[in-house]
């Protein structure tokens, strides 16, 4: 009886090893094709891509936005970001790209008196997903999305405004 059980267990092991390899082979062949394509891309066709180009393909939304913010703000800028209901939570990683600029993510009260970690007040606001939706007196506004950079000076912004609705930009307070 014990011998039979031992034999059955050994058969079970051999079967499980067989199933394992079958399963790995089945799930491994398709990725192997992908790996070959990736290797060709990384070693031949796209080997000379810059960091910017790679990041724009890996994190297109966040990295493009970060590049624009960097372009239009000085390194010591403190920027108010929209409350969570306006932004994808993943947008918080933009802090990494725009450092040393400091983002302050507003809460639902949207108070422009909100201070950063070290007590700093914001001097910029991110125009994003129809935010800010309250009147803001801006010394300037730079729109990101247009092919020709658009700048507005001394303007009061309060969405909805057909000129800015659905656009992204940075507002200097």
């Amino acid at each position: 009886m014990i011998k039979k059980l031992k034999f059955l267990t050994q058969v079970a092991i051999i079967l499980s090893v067989g199933i394992y390899f079958w399963q790995r082979l089945g799930s491994g062949l398709r990725p192997f094709g992908t790996v070959l394509t990736d290797l060709q891309r990384m070693l031949i066709t796209e080997r000379n891509l810059t960091y910017d180009q790679k990041m724009l393909s890996l994190r297109p939304d966040e990295y493009f936005l970060a590049q624009q913010i960097i372009k239009y703000t000085p390194p010591d800028a403190v920027i108010y970001f929209p409350p969570p209901e306006y932004v994808d939570p993943g947008l918080s990683i933009i802090s990494y790209f725009i450092y040393p600029r400091i983002p302050i993510f507003l809460d639902s009260q949207k108070l422009l008196t909100t201070r950063g970690k070290n007590g700093e007040l914001g001097n910029y606001i991110l125009l994003y997903n129809d935010f800010p939706d309250f009147p803001v007196s801006a010394s300037s506004l730079f729109l990101f999305d247009s092919t020709i950079p658009q700048t507005f000076e001394n303007i009061t912004i309060g969405l909805p405004d057909p000129r800015f609705s659905g656009k992204k930009g940075i507002i200097r307070l």
């Binding site: 059980l5 031992k6 267990t9 050994q10 079970a12 092991i13 499980s16 090893v17 199933i19 394992y20 399963q23 790995r24």
Partner: peptide, 17 residues
């Protein structure tokens, strides 16, 4: 998965034999 497929029968054979 699928490591546990191989691991599971070994629990039996190791523990009892």
């Amino acid at each position: 998965k699928p490591t546990i497929l191989v691991f599971a029968p070994f629990i039996f054979i190791e523990s009892f034999w």
